[in-house]
Amino acid sequence: MLKGRHLLDPTDFSPGELDEIFDFADQIIQSPAQFNHLCDSSILATLFYEPSTRTRFSFEAAMLRLGGNVVGFSEPTSSSVAKGESVADTIRTVACYADIIVMRHPKEGAPRIASQYSPVPVINAGDGGHLHPTQTLTDLLTIRSVKHQLTGLTIGCCGDLKFGRTVHSLIKAASRYPDNRFVLISPKELRVPDYVTADLATKGIAYQEVERLDDVIGNLDILYMTRVQKERFFNEDDYVRLKDVYVLNAEKMRLARQDMIVMHPLPRVGEISYDIDDDPRAYYFKQAKFGMFVRMALISKLLGVS
């Protein structure tokens, strides 16, 4: 039963519950018009304490396509947050007006605080460099649609694995499916946090940490590219030094298998060359569309209207 639940961490829902969401997303993809009035009279609040284009648009578009309404802010300066209001108080107030809340926050764990004070479902739309569970739903739905399975995959994650919340979430969620293994490709400075590898080690899941993409790209079923995020660095020099370490281009794609797919949570900056956009293995824009459908399914399930 997903009605009334929060989604803060990609493992908050069991694989069976995720399947329920993915199955419903598939139904929406098949005939979206059929669900145009599913959320009539419901209100989604989008609290974005940090800039976002696709996640916020995707949530708002999802709610509007379900017939619901949207309120919220896209930057904290235009809300009472600028006056110093706490997360707890903002949430208790917003929950008086909205049926479901989506929150993005630069501080890690903020949506968990929100959930502790909210009588309505809270969805984590990204908290600092920590987690981004709805991107993970998007990623898993994309993989399921293309590969027709979520098991037995070699998943390469490349780029900023330290602050890349989409990567942390994906590893956490995909490690629950049998026989998946992970290849973590990053410079030493941007390796995944200890808690991520500690989890993999505890569960006995195979992973390797490498620095060169060329050496491993031929072994991958999925290559998940990420952007080195300027906003996560406290030191500008470190960002400049690391931002262009990995660039996926046509030359590197020649080393990859024909059935490998390239994913990216977007936006990209320079880590994927435009010359591979037309490669049939490039899935990042299709992935963005899956994002809206899976959010439609998620909202419906949490509101209990599906």
Binding site: H105, K107, G109, A110, I113
Partner: peptide, 29 residues
């Protein structure tokens, strides 16, 4: 970057994840 660094009314909650290594995990981040 943890939310507890700015929202001071929140209790700092940690749970034990590995007794052998003495590792705890912050409930929030």
């Amino acid at each position: 970057r943890c939310i507890t660094s700015v929202e001071k009314y929140i209790p700092q909650v940690f749970t034990l994840v590995n007794r052998e290594l003495g590792q705890y995990r912050c409930q929030y981040c």
